[in-house]
Write a protein that binds this DNA or RNA. Sequence first.
DNA 1: AAGTGGTCTAGACCACTCA
DNA 2: GAGTGGTCTAGACCACTTG
Lengths: 245, 245
Amino acid sequence: MSSNAAVGADRFSKKPLYAQLRDALAERISAGAWKPGAVIPNESDLAREFGVSAGTMRKALDLMEAERLLTRRQGRGTFVNDQASDELSLRFSSLRAANGDHLDGQAKTTQVTEDAANELERLRLQLGPHDRIYRIHRTRLHKNQPFMVEHAAVPAALFPGLGEKAEVASRIIVLAQQYGVLLGKAEERVSIGQAAKLVADALGIAPDTPVMVLDRVVQALDGRPIEWRVGWCHLADKYYKAEMV
Amino acid sequence: MSSNAAVGADRFSKKPLYAQLRDALAERISAGAWKPGAVIPNESDLAREFGVSAGTMRKALDLMEAERLLTRRQGRGTFVNDQASDELSLRFSSLRAANGDHLDGQAKTTQVTEDAANELERLRLQLGPHDRIYRIHRTRLHKNQPFMVEHAAVPAALFPGLGEKAEVASRIIVLAQQYGVLLGKAEERVSIGQAAKLVADALGIAPDTPVMVLDRVVQALDGRPIEWRVGWCHLADKYYKAEMV
DNA sequence: AAGTGGTCTAGACCACTCA
DNA sequence: GAGTGGTCTAGACCACTTG
């Protein structure tokens, strides 16, 4: 009984109830029904609304907290995370100044173009032969000094109208939140290369200077690739920080 | 009532019961009472033994699974993880061959010496002025080609008698399991340097060739630093892989 | 069929926050 | 003091594995 009707037409879904609840709640965030920073109803109200026990609803909320969608605070309530906050928006920014600080977020977007995805882009973004992408070229600055040139590609289907926007968010995390895309994990390949002429010019270094090459794919919460980005970084007085668990 | 006496003299500990249970169970693994690969008693037996409800014991076991101490399999039982297994022992090995494979684990240990920790070592390993360390020098090989020179330092107090061993495990994860140290996370700083003469000779490259410098501190589960390692890596046809969540 | 972990329920009580 | 999330309990039932 109790007929989880409210959880949607999950006819033959084999997912456990708490996972279905998470999906339903995540959809509310993605669709904008619950805004970043807002409080959501308390556990028992939500449990009642969905016709499940409080313990099951708690398990769903705990899951979403681990996925960085929510923050729960005893005595206060449960809040929708604002991915644009300082803390969360730097989640995938691995470069650090010599003193350990994050590099500040200034960026200059030099180009946004739409095109059919080439072979490499289709491979890295798991797209089909007719899918289109936006290519974004950017230079990142720290204390007004350029330190990294970036070429990014994002599936056009996920970010409709991106080419017409006056300002494109310089962090994929912020961009994703604007388009209702929930972020999952990212994977980065770090290697050493030599600065090509265009990169060297933009960074103010000599051509063929060794640079760190950052090749990163960011996934949505459901695992779909969202962004493929290659960055060429002049590493003077900086380092790349990785954490392993 | 129910007097969690079995959980130990936790007089004024403010930790929740499930966290105290985790500590008690982790101690059994650390002390060798439960061996790597072995099955441990089922949930309800453990709950009875410790005088807690099955749900609380489950929460402790779930925690330990997330910490990679246990593996639970429906219908089979709960097993102590063998940290020396292929899967787990490569947890902190971020270097990959061009095809994405892990580099094979051959290593040649060239030196193990005991000494007082110098200033840098005390800082990185959070040691006091009189603490001693073992310094380990190693060269790692892939397909019989040396690709990385490593200098590691570990607190002598945690690995007593290490200097007298005929063979020192080449992975900190394996070494830690041998000494009953439970591992937590690691943090790595990646930068670009130039091969010093000794490094260049060991790797068979020209001095001053750009190399990737891997500066890593590995922590125990309780947060204590266990190993500080600096590696100089010739990156030809390889890359460093980072995952971000 | 017996034994294991995984899910779900229902309810009590505690710890924290804030008006 | 009212409201929130956090802990803990007790028990039912399900899904999977193995003899």
